[in-house]
């Protein structure tokens, strides 16, 4: 919408430019560079947006978004000091991760559904979003200077290691259950749990007052603990 509205405005500006350009030349000569500085960047930005969204193929648009999501995945896997994840947040990645985790935690057999025991799709979904919202509100209440959706985005993206753990667990469960199998799964889940917590605190802790980092990290720890515990106790 905003981009579409920008372009007519820009056209108007260009069409009306010859009308007023001479006038400004005549009256105040030193105002010209300032005017140029102000109008040119906004014009080029609008043009760039126009060309990228309207003229390109749908495939390229989707690929661009997917690439952005993938880049953020890499940021989670190699947590380093960078605020790309914070600056341009999106909720696509969290949605993808949440849905895939919920699907993997679903029991396939009819017997499993009858017995219960498996967390259901809606429940995993609710736990992840409700937990993320709770942590976000908590960090806001503690005086953090992070926006609501930025925090949701970070918490959602940092479920990625746990997704990987879930994938490995499902593969291991194909081989059959046993104490050794369980020990391997426990190890994998613990490592991925630590990874999730470290990655999310690397992004979130900077937004908290320095003396309260521990208070903000504790609910994050609890949240990922519950999720990883659900993964560990899962049996198909």
């Amino acid at each position: 919408m905003a981009e579409a509205e920008d372009s007519p405005g820009e056209q108007e500006a260009t069409s009306s430019k010859p009308l007023f350009a001479g006038l400004s030349d005549v009256s105040i000569s030193q105002d010209i560079p300032i005017e140029g500085e102000i109008t040119i960047p906004s014009g080029t930005r609008a043009q760039e947006c126009d060309s990228s969204t309207l003229n390109e193929s749908i495939r390229r648009t989707i690929m661009r978004d997917l690439k952005a999501v993938g880049r953020k995945f890499m940021h989670v896997l190699y947590p380093r000091k960078s605020n790309t994840l914070l600056r341009d947040w999106d909720l696509w990645g969290p949605l993808i991760l949440c849905v895939s985790l919920a699907l993997m935690l679903q029991k396939s057999s009819v017997e499993g559904k009858r017995d219960g025991g498996s967390p259901e799709f809606a429940e995993v979904f609710v736990i992840i979003w409700f937990g993320a919202v709770t942590i976000t509100l908590n960090s806001k209440l503690l005086g953090g200077n992070i926006s609501f959706f930025q925090s949701l985005c970070v918490l959602g993206y940092c479920v990625l290691p746990l997704n990987i753990a879930m994938l490995i667990c499902r593969l291991l469960l194909l081989a059959g259950q046993g104490p050794i199998n369980f020990m391997i799964r426990l190890f994998v889940v613990l490592v991925m749990f630590a990874w999730s917590v470290i990655a999310s605190t690397a992004f979130l802790a900077d937004c908290q007052p320095p003396n309260r980092k521990a208070l903000a990290v504790y609910p994050v720890f609890l949240f990922y603990f519950v999720v990883s515990w659900m993964i560990l106790t899962f049996t198909p």
Binding site: G117, P119, E120, I127, T233
Partner: peptide, 13 residues
């Protein structure tokens, strides 16, 4: 979960 309960997770949560 660890107790021998018929676990209906949604209800339990």
């Amino acid at each position: 979960k660890t107790s021998d309960t018929i676990i209906r997770e949604g209800t339990l949560m």
